[in-house]
Amino acid sequence: MRSDMMAGSRPYDLKRYPGFGFMAAVCLGLLYLPLFVLVFFSFNERRSVSNWSEFSLDWYAKALANDAIRQAATNSFLVATVATIAATVLATAAALATTRVQRFRGLTACYAVINSPLMVPEIVTAVALLSFLSLIGLELGVGNVMIAHTVFCVPFAYLPIRARLHGMDTTLEQAAADLYADPVQTFRHVTLPMLMPGIIAGAALAFVISLDDFIITQMVASAGATTLPVYIYSQVRMGVTPEVNAVSSMLLGVSIVFVSMAVLLRKKETA
């Protein structure tokens, strides 16, 4: 019965399960190999995404010189910046209102409303917004996309800010008040600086989420308001070239930078 425990000269590791390490390798391989292939062929000299010829940055140069891509990239960054700022401000106010306050009736309902964009499937949000915007006749071009993005960015910004606020005690603020700081001074010089890591993490996530969104933007964006993911999608449907790989790789790079930033900030907070 205990034969398996005696087998082998290796000290018996209670925590080890055979094959689990292999599964972890499968998991990481599955997550990263496709991305690796994508980036690899963006450096291919030939117009092929399956046969390697020679290293070249031509496709990046082509992508950066392409007017449609530049326009889409400008839109993407414009939308992401505006949506991030708006969502972070709204989320900070909402976090201050729902954390460290006396529990009031409807607090749970407040969480549900703020987080509702997370619960509704994206495709449903997309067609609902399309219907709604066409009913009220709002045609702001990129503005429509900005409004749509701000809505679903709010919960992503809200969660890290709330987590940060939740873990902060009120002693420093009380001290500031004892030293005759008025509420504005206390907020500006004590609360806000302490809250900053949460705000930056929330803003970084909001930025990534906005930059990555495809379905909602596809439905809401009018002709001139195309963002990078919408552009990439239209190209992928037409056929695959290393130029698409190059644009995708660049977008991937930007996302990874922002995600790393958010993760590192959160780690600092828990450390």
């Binding site: 972890a24 998991c27 990481l28 997550l31 990263y32 190999l33 496709p34 991305l35 292939v37 994508l38 062929f41 995404v49 399956s50 996530l205 990534v208 989420i209 930059l211 990555d212 495809f214 993911p229 990439i232 999608y233 992928v236 695959v240 698409v244 790989n245 995708s248 977008l251 991937l252 996302s255 990874i256 995600v259 790393s260 958010a262 993760v263």
Partner: peptide
């Protein structure tokens, strides 16, 4: 490190990830 490696795809562009699976 491993958790970081699992987290990054969690937040990266789903369109780009799906496209890369198409290539595979």
């Amino acid at each position: 490190i491993l958790i970081f490696l699992v987290t990054v795809p969690f937040w990266t562009n789903l369109l780009v990830r799906t496209f890369s699976m198409m290539l595979i």
